[in-house]
């Protein structure tokens, strides 16, 4: 704000105190108008920024839980949104090139499984449930996890791998798909979430 505003602070409302034109030279007024114009342009730029953004935190690495973050991310990117998926703990397996092709479905503790837990916990049941699910995915024309990662990266989705978890799991940065961002942590995720329109934890 102008420093040559008359001292009217005792009114308690600075916005009401408009400089009397006779107190200011034309040059000073012009400078003030220019300054206000710039401020207005900045504000308009902020308001006019209709670029939506979304941050998803992906924490699960089972076959069923790998899908929602990638489907939402690739679709939001198709909307033209700026999308970040921060993968941490088991969610990291989605970005692990080898593990992502071999994600498992758990037969135990899954109420949607048509079998009691006592049977689901038998050896080989997870493998069987996973095979059934993979067959359904193929029959339905549903994209594979690898395809979803490819289209997400193609569309500019920032797939981030939590550095702390990479070290915790003894993974190597080379284990991940090309284009995956490494060397990021919770602070990076939070910073993006603070600015995002949509934040999801999966």
């Amino acid at each position: 704000m102008s420093t040559d505003t008359p001292d009217t602070a005792d009114t308690g409302d600075a916005a009401d105190s408009i400089d009397a034109p006779e107190d200011l030279s034309t040059a000073e007024l012009a400078a003030e108008v220019e300054e206000l114009r710039e401020e207005l342009a900045d504000l308009k730029a902020d308001l006019g920024d209709d670029q939506k953004s979304m941050v998803i935190v992906a924490t699960k690495g089972t076959l069923d839980m790998a899908y929602p973050p990638l489907i939402l991310a690739s679709t939001a990117a198709a909307f033209g949104w700026d999308v970040t998926v921060f993968h941490t703990f088991w969610g990291l397996d989605i970005l692990h090139e080898k593990k992502s092709k071999n994600l498992k479905l758990s037969a135990v503790g899954n109420p949607s499984m048509p079998m009691p837990n006592a049977i689901a916990s038998l050896p080989g049941m997870d493998t069987m449930a996973t095979k059934m699910m993979n067959k359904k995915i193929a029959d339905n024309g549903t994209a594979t996890i690898e395809e979803l990662i490819d289209v997400s990266l193609d569309q500019g989705v920032d797939l981030q791998a939590c550095q702390m978890t990479i070290e915790l799991m003894n993974y190597d940065e080379a284990d991940f798909y090309d284009g995956v961002t490494t060397g990021v942590g919770a602070a990076t995720a939070l910073q993006r979430m603070a600015d995002a329109d949509v934040q999801l934890l999966v």
């Binding site: 489907i71 198709a78 909307f79 569309q155």
Partner: peptide, 13 residues
């Protein structure tokens, strides 16, 4: 033959 999200994603492309 393709299902969600591919129709939208490929349309955008």
């Amino acid at each position: 033959g393709e299902s969600c999200p591919m129709p939208v994603v490929k349309t955008k492309g």
